[in-house]
């Protein structure tokens, strides 16, 4: 197994797992506690439109996806704050519109669209040095935001009207954090694919919340569980020769299930106070 570390692709995958656990662990905790999972799913799928346009224009599909994801994030945030349209309907429209645009432009692109499968299902083993640099910058930004503004983020998530009354710039936070969600989701499409990336942002967090209600610990445990699950999936994918994205999600959900069983067993063996 030590020999794995001699492969560049494996070292890249390992670094991706570390950086991804940090980024997804932090912003995912915000997504889960503020109940933004559906919005995140919408943004991720909408970014497929940008991916298709990227193919068509011959630019990096991920740049296209990031632009599209960011715009749909702002669109949904704007609509939900102005309440001109029901939020869930707005999300559904962005979700399906993005997918439709993506399909149209990939169809219009002459020839075969290379790597399309890796965007749909993820491929942590093909992460490049430039991808890693982007991931490093994103992890740095996320860490900075969460260390500096953790209390404000927690307060906004818990009680937005009160946060406003305390003079916290709630709207500014809302836009910055939804942009961070879009960027994180799009960048980690590289790891798990459009369809599966939602797991990286929600499964470790829910396991963490099952164990603790302390916000700091939720952030730390989410990072830790995300890392363990990603590495386990990576090894599973290598030794069983199965797609890495699916293997990672499979191991994340297994990790969650094991954690759930341990907690259930723990509470069963505890003597109830009479």
């Amino acid at each position: 197994m030590i020999s794995l570390f001699t492969y560049t692709f494996f070292n890249h995958a390992l670094l991706t797992a570390i950086l991804g656990s940090i980024s997804c662990g932090l912003i995912g905790s915000y997504i889960v506690t503020r109940r933004l999972v559906f919005i995140t799913g919408g943004i991720t799928h909408a970014s497929f439109g940008g991916l298709g346009i990227g193919y068509f224009l011959g630019i990096s599909p991920l740049v296209g996806a990031a632009v599209f994801g960011g715009l749909s994030a702002f669109g949904v945030q704007y609509l939900s704050s102005k309440q001109k349209l029901r939020v869930d309907s707005a999300i559904a429209m962005a979700w399906s519109f993005g997918m439709a645009v993506g399909i149209i432009f990939i169809f219009l692109t002459p020839g075969y669209a290379p790597n399309l499968m890796s965007y749909l299902f993820g491929s942590i083993l093909t992460v490049s040095v430039s991808d890693l640099i982007v991931m490093l910058v994103l992890a740095g930004i996320s860490t900075f935001i969460f260390i500096t503004f953790k209390r404000s983020i927690q307060l906004i998530s818990f009680d937005e009207p009160f946060a406003r009354s305390q003079g916290i710039k709630v709207d500014v936070f809302n836009y910055i954090l939804i942009l961070l969600i879009a960027l994180t989701a799009v960048i980690y499409i590289r790891v798990a694919g459009i369809i599966l990336v939602l797991s990286l942002l929600t499964v470790p967090q829910n396991l963490a919340i099952m164990i603790t209600r302390n916000y700091n610990k939720i952030l730390l445990f989410s990072i830790l569980f995300g890392f363990v699950g990603t590495i386990a999936g990576l090894l599973l994918s290598y030794f069983l020769d199965i797609p890495s994205g699916a293997a990672i999600i499979f191991s994340l959900i297994s990790e969650y299930f094991i954690g759930w069983c341990i907690i259930k067993l723990g509470s069963l063996t505890k003597v109830k106070p009479s």
Binding site: T33, R151, F158, Q166, R213
Partner: peptide, 20 residues
């Protein structure tokens, strides 16, 4: 209405009144 399952302790709720 707020999320009854939100992870925040009573002590932290009280302290959050210092935000301003």
């Amino acid at each position: 209405e707020f999320d009854k399952r939100f992870p925040i302790s009573v002590n932290d709720v009280v302290l959050s009144g210092l935000a301003s």
